[in-house]
Design a protein around this nucleic acid. Structure first.
Lengths: 206, 206
DNA sequence: GTCTATACGGAGATAGAC
DNA sequence: GTCTATCTCCGTATAGAC
């Protein structure tokens, strides 16, 4: 019968995914080696074949962990903000809260999806789940605001705006630019709440 | 005295940069090896150390070539469109013209700058020159439209919007999304021409 | 002398055997 | 958890072709 000595393996596995998550974000997936991860955790290279059988296996676990944490983040936003517009502001605010990381390493979701898309990596679909998580959640908020017809387009639009801000801020390393664009996005959200929006007109006339 | 037998070396060098340019775009810089480039050109691997002394050397030549072609592109836009608003539409139209490539490999400028930024590669600054080229040109158009005070902010904003569209379209591989966002951008440009813009207000109140 | 091709060595990465 | 095998890649050294 199994003893109670199993938490160790889960702990080590968690440490590996955690370290890999951070390194994948800071250096990119392709430029992070087993040695990097092993060194960060403090175990030997061969050791974590007990936990993961390939690099892609680690990637899958990392993405799964990010999906989990993103779901928790979205739930936290729902808990701390009651109205749809407030929740949408939580999303935009994220750009300011994570500004130092964005300037240094870009958006965690965008840079990962971008890299995997360029490599035509099988895990792209899984990573896109992160984008879809935000997309669906944003869509729900726009629906709750009464923008049912254009909710999905608005969600994608906002998602792309945030991605663009992160991408340019990352390349140019400009803090001021992030602040200015967040201001723009907040104003845009307010305009959306007031409703007579450009996207509504665009969608209606198509 | 040198004979007229020198065009060969320039031709080979051009072939290498051309092939490297394409492969860097399709596969990313980090995931393209010398063997890939050599194979594409049809020469042996050791051979092009006569032309470039390192991989970073090739990267520098590729970026230089892209800068050159970007300048030519901007000049062509100026030639084919006389008014600032028409020229800005040229920029937005680029998203539609290059749509298949964007869906498959992302924006050439954005994906390169993103990769180099993540690697903290010395060539990032040079690659950012591509962004700056667009930024300055766009700024000039907004200035010519009479939006002098906010011209640079508007230029960066438009640049980021385009980057966001390309990034999301690349990850999700969605053609419809590009079309919808281009429509939005065209509407936004029209609104900018009419002037009373959100960015003007935002900038004034900061 | 200039360009090109083959061969070789060092480094590092993945994968796996023990 | 150590140790090794195999592979790829960068860079060089060397030698042949025009």
């Amino acid at each position: 019968m199994p003893t109670a000595a199993t938490p160790d393996i889960r702990r080590t596995r968690g440490q590996i995914t955690e370290a890999a998550d951070r390194l994948f974000y800071e250096q990119g997936f392709g430029h992070t080696s087993f040695a990097d991860v092993a060194g960060a955790v403090g175990i030997s290279r061969g050791n974590f074949y007990h936990h993961f059988k390939s690099k892609d296996d680690i990637l899958a676990a990392v993405i799964e962990g990010r999906l989990e944490r993103t779901r928790a983040l979205l739930q936290a936003w729902e808990a701390q903000a009651c109205t749809p517009i407030e929740r949408l502001h939580c999303f935009v605010q994220m750009l300011l809260d994570n500004q130092p990381h964005i300037l240094a390493h870009g958006c965690p979701v965008g840079t990962l999806c971008g890299e995997l898309a360029k490599l035509d990596h099988p895990a792209l679909e899984q990573a896109n789940g992160l984008l879809v998580l935000f997309r669906d959640w944003l869509r729900q908020q726009f629906e709750a605001m009464g923008r049912t017809a254009e909710a999905d387009a608005l969600a994608l639009h906002l998602l792309a705006r945030a991605q663009g801000v992160a991408a340019v801020a990352h390349a140019l390393r400009s803090e001021a630019f992030v602040r200015a664009e967040v201001y723009e996005l907040q104003a845009w959200l307010t305009a959306q709440q007031a409703s007579g929006s450009s996207l509504a007109g665009a969608r209606a006339s198509t």
